[in-house]
Amino acid sequence: MKILRHLLFPVVPIYFMVTWLRNKLYDLGIKKAMNYDFPVICVGNLSAGGTGKTPMIEYLVKLLKADYKVATLSRGYKRKTTGFQLANASATVETIGDEPFQFYNKFKDAIEVAVDSDRQNGIAELQALSKKLDVILLDDAFQHRKVQAGFNIMLTTYSNPFFSDIVLPTGDLREPRSGAKRAHCIVVTKCPLDINNSEKEAIIKRINPLKSQSVFFSSIVYSETLFSEAESITFEAIKPFTLVTGIANATPLVQFLKGKQLNFEHLNYKDHHEFSEQDIVELSKKSLIVTTEKDFMRMKDYTVLRDKLYYLPIEVKIDDKPKFEALIKAFTKR
């Protein structure tokens, strides 16, 4: 795969020019974007996947749900439905996608969860609900220029920052680095917990933010408890297990578990992997399975796995939490 991506390097300038021109047409107002008179917050990135959008959306939900009527709007990647879908008691991964299904399972009593590949239509449908909404959180919509969010949070990872990358197909960027200028704040995600100030300053220098942009650093914090549908267990009580992942980058999780000196094998599938019947048959032979919360949503309804399947929750820790949350709350109060 890496060899193929390098062989496709001649395509990079073409991809660069097409995406740059598209953005320029929006910047000049030639292509029209929809503005809104209520708070719309976009969480996105320049890179293709794996920057931590899902935990950031959950962070914002927890921050805002007590004071506002909040909705999340996602594309619903790999769902089997089309058009606008509002999550309800009959929702599944197949109808709304794995990440929205995760949002619904965690916050169904507090927020609305919807999917629509057309974000303009999705926002219109949400605003037409009898329950009037105060804030809409757009999941992975940074390149969806038809919608102009009032506040853009752009994520980039510590291990593969956008300023060291190039556009697809050889690199991972969906658009040129200059797209970062649209962000109101930039969050460097998946940082080591012990990242020091000098390293932060060096990264900020490479980002070269606009005066109006704030830069934050966040880390993944893993739970010390694993959960199944029926119970929870601690790492101290866990037996040898199989780690099953279908996410963009499982390295931080693997390193965390190895740091715990745990005994496990790792089955690493591609991001958003759709588990086949054969996959489930093979997994059912395992004595104990640990997975991510997102993968758990795709696997939990298989009866043969129910008694052996556990997930490890994660949270986002932001280095300057008061400043970050003050920015978000100042925007939502407008």
Rank of each mutant, 00 (worst) to 15 (best):
R75N: 09
A66K: 14
G50N: 08
N35S: 14
Y77Q: 00
A66M: 12
Y26I: 05
V61C: 06
N35D: 12
K65L: 12
F38Q: 07
K80G: 11
G29Y: 02
K106C: 09
S90T: 14
G97A: 02
E94A: 15
L46W: 01
V93T: 05
L25E: 01
R75D: 02
T51C: 03
N105W: 03
D98G: 07
T95C: 03
R75W: 10
D98I: 03
Y59T: 03
K106T: 00
A33E: 10
K53L: 01
K65Q: 15
N35F: 12
L25F: 11
G83T: 09
V70C: 05
A33H: 10
K80E: 15
A48F: 14
N23Q: 13
E58Q: 12
Y104E: 07
K80N: 15
I30D: 08
Y36G: 00
R22E: 00
Y68C: 10
G97R: 02
D109I: 07
Y77G: 01
N35K: 13
E94R: 11
R75L: 04
T81S: 15
V70A: 08
C42R: 05
L86H: 04
F101C: 00
L25S: 06
L86P: 02
Q102M: 15
W20M: 13
N23T: 09
K80A: 13
A33P: 06
Y26Q: 04
M34E: 14
R22C: 01
A66D: 15
G83N: 09
A71G: 05
A66E: 15
G76F: 04
F101R: 06
N35Q: 13
E94N: 14
N23H: 12
K78D: 04
R22N: 10
T92L: 10
G52P: 11
V43F: 07
F101D: 01
G49F: 05
K24C: 12
V43H: 07
T81F: 10
C42K: 06
I41Y: 02
L63Q: 09
L86K: 08
T82R: 14
Q85R: 13
L28A: 12
I96C: 08
T95G: 08
S90Y: 13
S90R: 13
D27I: 09
L46M: 03
E99M: 10
N105T: 07
G49S: 09
D98M: 08
N88K: 09
I30W: 11
K32R: 13
V70Q: 02
Y77H: 03
G97V: 04
V61D: 03
W20D: 13
